[in-house]
């Protein structure tokens, strides 16, 4: 029983002094062991800088602060990837709401879209990451349980059709609601973006997303210097840091400049239709008004901006 040992700390009690000394030694040893255990963190210090640590949320940054941040990111890309990149920040276009449609009758499952995404968005080479996952589905239903995203045989295979899935840019996005720190939000043109410098990497959004659209940077992305896409934007395809979430942005660095997204340009069959939902003359509007389109998991009430249809 410890009680017999627990003596009243009376002044000049020798045992107490010795015990106190032992405790001091113990505490010192403990602190030293603690420092040793935490040593791997020291190896991070060269990557960490105070400016990045103290950087405010993207939407709180003034134009001047943004310029400083973008310059720092460009220097980081040079230092860490030996790539000369420019970081832009295209603003949403007024009266534009982006929408995407995909013709499942035409898609042949060639994964050219996923490949283009991989290159355009500076994804990690080792994991062959892409925001698009193409599912080989069995004819006769839309049953993902019979789907397979890792097929590797000539396409289109008989009896199969193909269903590429990427971010649906939901109007009622569960990921945005989930994020505890507003590191992900919906832009005025409907694109759900992530501030890679604000995200703490809790992955609640990844759990909340019903479409497996979000990706986490489990480690620092590896890209050879010559393969880095130098045309980058802060909210989309710049090389992401380790430990943060990322997602499809409908290539906002392209689409906000009026260009088509990379996945659409890569599509050899024209299964993909992209445009402004507010423009009654746009291709996307024609598809929605004339084709029998559907959205994935409509019952969840997420109101996707990504439509599928068969001819």
């Amino acid at each position: 029983m410890s009680d017999s040992q627990v003596q009243l700390p009376i002044i000049d009690q020798p045992q107490s002094n010795r015990r106190g000394f032992m405790k001091t030694v113990g505490a010192t040893l403990g602190l030293a062991a603690w420092a040793a255990a935490m040593k791997p963190l020291l190896e991070l210090t060269e990557d960490v800088n105070a400016d990045e640590f103290l950087q405010n949320h993207y939407r709180e940054l003034t134009a001047e602060q943004k310029a400083v941040v973008f310059k720092r990111l460009e220097e980081d890309a040079k230092k860490e990837y030996n790539a000369d990149v420019t970081i832009s920040d295209p603003a949403p276009i007024e009266n534009v709401q982006f929408g995407y449609a995909l013709n499942l009758s035409v898609c042949i499952g060639c994964r050219k879209c996923a490949e283009a995404c991989h290159i355009e968005n500076n994804h990690d080479r080792a994991s062959n990451n892409s925001y698009i996952r193409v599912f080989e589905m069995e004819m006769g239903g839309i049953d993902f349980e019979k789907g397979n995203a890792t097929y590797d045989h000539p396409v289109p295979a008989p009896g199969k059709y193909y269903m590429p899935v990427q971010c649906q840019q939901c109007e009622n996005a569960p990921c945005v609601t989930a994020c505890p720190i507003e590191a992900t939000w919906k832009e005025p043109d409907g694109i759900v973006v992530v501030d890679y410098n604000w995200c703490i990497g809790c992955r609640y959004c990844e759990a909340a997303c019903p479409y497996h659209a979000r990706r986490f940077n489990w480690e620092k992305p590896e890209i050879p210097a010559e393969e880095v896409n130098p045309n980058q934007s802060y909210l989309s395809n710049r090389i992401r840091p380790q430990g943060v979430m990322e997602k499809c942005t409908f290539c906002l660095h392209r689409t906000r400049e009026g260009r088509l997204p990379a996945c659409l340009e890569a599509c050899p069959t024209g299964a993909r239709v992209f445009g402004n939902l507010l423009d009654p003359d746009s291709e996307i509007r024609w598809v929605i008004e004339n084709k029998r389109t559907f959205v994935l998991k409509e019952e969840l009430g997420t109101k996707p901006r990504f439509f599928y249809y068969f001819d």
Partner: peptide
């Protein structure tokens, strides 16, 4: 957390606290 160094983003008033939605 993937980025524990950014823990301060969670502090109400200093960071951005997505309350009451999240």
């Amino acid at each position: 957390l993937g980025r524990p160094d950014r823990f301060w983003h969670l502090i109400p008033g200093i960071g951005k606290f997505n309350w009451p939605l999240s």
